[in-house]
Amino acid sequence: MKKSQLILMVTLFSVAILACSPPKGIHESEVTEGSIANNQTLADNSRNSLDWYGVYKGITPCADCEGIETTITLKRNSTFKRSLKYLGKNENSFFDEGNFEWDETGSYVTLMGKEGTTQMYQVGENVIFHLDQEGNRITGELANMYRLQKNPVDFRLENKKWVLIELRGKPVEKKEGQSEGFIEFDMETGMFSGKNTCNNFFGQYELMEGDRIKFGQAGSTLMACPDMTTEQEFMEVLKIADNYNVVDELLSLNRAKMAPLARFELAKVD
């Protein structure tokens, strides 16, 4: 056999071996039909390619009430919180929390309540679909009511610390016995929290189109401070503000088109 023929046979054998090997980084046991032809098949799913964590809301059908106002928070640590409000009933609220698991395809999650109940959801882009007990999408006239929409997010605003610098047009000066006033918005849980210069506060918020914001009722600690004026004004702003602006490193909370109720600056990172 000529040397050139031998080299050609070795080359073809090497190419054949490479063609039959799984893609780099994928164990042989994970290879499924078509995955070699498309190296992205195993990676492109809801779990890996979407910002799925966050708060989802909707009103699902109810057999003996006006509807079930549903809120589900999916967290990156594989835990969930769920609240159900049965519209038109006297005792109408239910709350639970627990863990959830992804299926092997990374497209579905199963919520596991503390009482052993389970519920599956298909995860899409900014939406989850309530599935039937067999794990199938619900069809028919009410199909659209079995979808929960994810709350809008704003990377300019959320997951940052904003320090209070102005209230109703007046600069905020730190007085003796006061702490720094600030607010933070948690994208994952839809919770706001902070300090009003005296007490810690917290609550739920919701972002809407057009830089609008809705603050839920705020809870707070009950420590007494020498001067409560700034605290009271700060908390009043959170009750009435309905929109916001973020320009560079400044945040303003506003009501309608009036002058800003409060201004904040982005906290400096040490």
Rank of each mutant, 00 (worst) to 15 (best):
I7P: 12
I7H: 06
L8Q: 14
L8H: 06
T11N: 04
F13N: 08
P22D: 01
P23T: 03
G25C: 05
H27M: 06
E28T: 10
N39P: 14
N48I: 04
N48A: 07
D51R: 05
G54K: 01
V55H: 04
Y56P: 08
P61H: 00
D64W: 05
C65F: 00
E66L: 14
E69D: 15
K75F: 13
K75M: 15
R76K: 15
S78A: 09
S78M: 14
R82M: 15
L84C: 09
K85Q: 15
Y86P: 13
G88P: 07
N92Q: 13
S93Y: 08
D96L: 07
E97D: 13
N99E: 13
F100P: 01
W102A: 10
E104F: 08
L111N: 07
K114F: 11
T117W: 08
T118F: 01
M120L: 04
Y121N: 00
V123E: 01
V123G: 11
G124V: 07
E125L: 06
V127N: 02
V127P: 00
F129Q: 10
H130L: 03
N136L: 03
I138V: 11
E141R: 05
L148E: 00
K150E: 04
V153P: 05
V153T: 13
R156F: 08
L157K: 03
N159F: 04
N159S: 08
N159Q: 11
E166D: 15
R168M: 13
V172T: 05
E176I: 04
Q178G: 00
S179G: 12
E180P: 05
G181T: 00
F182Y: 11
E184P: 12
E184M: 14
D186A: 06
D186V: 09
T189D: 01
T189N: 02
M191W: 10
F192Y: 15
F192L: 07
F192K: 07
G194C: 01
K195C: 06
K195I: 11
T197C: 02
C198K: 03
F201Q: 06
Q204W: 05
M208S: 13
R212V: 13
K214M: 12
F215T: 01
A218P: 01
S220L: 02
L222P: 04
L222A: 10
L222I: 12
D227M: 00
T230F: 00
E231D: 09
E233S: 11
M235F: 09
M235L: 12
A241F: 03
A241C: 04
A241Q: 02
A241V: 02
D242T: 06
Y244W: 03
N245E: 14
E249R: 10
L250A: 11
S252Y: 00
R255M: 11
